[in-house]
């Protein structure tokens, strides 16, 4: 384990797991991440040209789906009875998946290609194993969740081993797998930074837009009205359908 990573992950975890409401938020985030991984692995199983990898990706996907369920059930268990936390709603509402980092339009496998994808899987799973070890060492956050983490850790360790073996195969073939692994590590750091800057940018732009709203919008309120109800005549349209179709795009 990287000393630096252990140095910051431990104290951060101690604080994060003890903040009110945070255990469920973190577990919900894990659940969604695992669900996202399941989709990535299923897409890889579908698309890989290496037929011997198909079953491995598929079984990996099933593990991730199971983990998502375990984390979701821990969120449910830790949520106040008779109420539902936002975190719990998130684990039960697939619609929220889009807000949790899954890049739609192109699968991770399609974006990276097989070797880089495997390098990414190896790095991500190894990081997860490290992270879970930190939680287990510190018995965070509660005995039942710790038991669940221990269960998941077995699978994650297996994922590290199989992806490492596959990376080793590439190495023996003389493929630039070490470069791919370094790239995967760098990509994780870069994506973390991008997420932070995006969130920060969104907050800042939100502030500026709010200022704009209160400074600029209000005078127009004096003349603006909501539409009335009931049927209204349809607005006039250009006589040429082609001309109409080119407008307001």
């Amino acid at each position: 384990m990287g000393q630096l990573r252990r140095a910051y992950l431990g104290p951060i975890s101690e604080v994060a797991w003890r903040l009110p409401g945070w255990p469920t938020r973190l577990l919900a985030a894990f659940s969604l991440a695992e669900r996202g991984s399941m989709l990535d692995m299923l897409a890889a199983a579908d698309a890989t040209p290496r037929r011997e990898m198909r079953r491995k990706y598929f079984l990996h996907a099933l593990d991730e789906g199971r983990h998502a369920g375990i984390f979701a059930s821990r969120v449910r268990a830790l949520s106040p009875p008779g109420n539902i936390s936002r975190a719990q709603a998130a684990t039960e509402d697939a619609g929220l998946l889009q807000g949790h980092g899954i890049v739609a339009g192109e699968t991770l496998f399609a974006r990276l290609g097989e070797m880089d994808f495997l390098a990414f899987v190896f790095v991500a799973e190894a990081d997860a194993v490290e992270q879970f070890h930190v939680y287990l060492d510190r018995r965070l956050p509660d005995p039942d969740t710790t038991a669940a983490l221990r269960d998941i850790l077995k699978d994650e360790s297996f994922h590290v081993s199989y992806s490492k073996l596959e990376c080793d195969k590439y190495r023996r073939e003389g493929q630039p797998i070490d470069h791919a692994i370094r790239l995967a590590r760098w990509r994780r750091v870069k994506e973390g930074w991008m997420r932070f800057t995006r969130d920060f940018g969104e907050r800042m732009s939100g502030v500026w837009l709010l200022v704009l709203y209160f400074l600029v919008i209000w005078p127009f309120r004096l003349v603006a009205r909501l539409e009335r109800g009931g049927w209204q005549r349809a607005p006039a349209r250009p006589t040429s359908a082609l001309a109409a179709a080119r407008l307001e795009g």
């Binding site: 732009s205 939100g206 502030v207 837009l209 709010l210 709203y213 209160f214 919008i217 209000w218 127009f220 309120r221 603006a224 009205r225 909501l226 407008l247 307001e248 795009g249």
Partner: peptide, 27 residues
């Protein structure tokens, strides 16, 4: 759909519901 006309509706509705639309406008 016609994105610019949709944008017009969103903007006009934000203005017409000022200041209650303060939360939705930035988003």
């Amino acid at each position: 759909e016609k994105p610019l006309r949709k944008f017009e509706r969103i903007l006009a509705t934000s203005v017409a519901t000022f200041p209650r639309s303060w939360g939705s406008f930035p988003r």
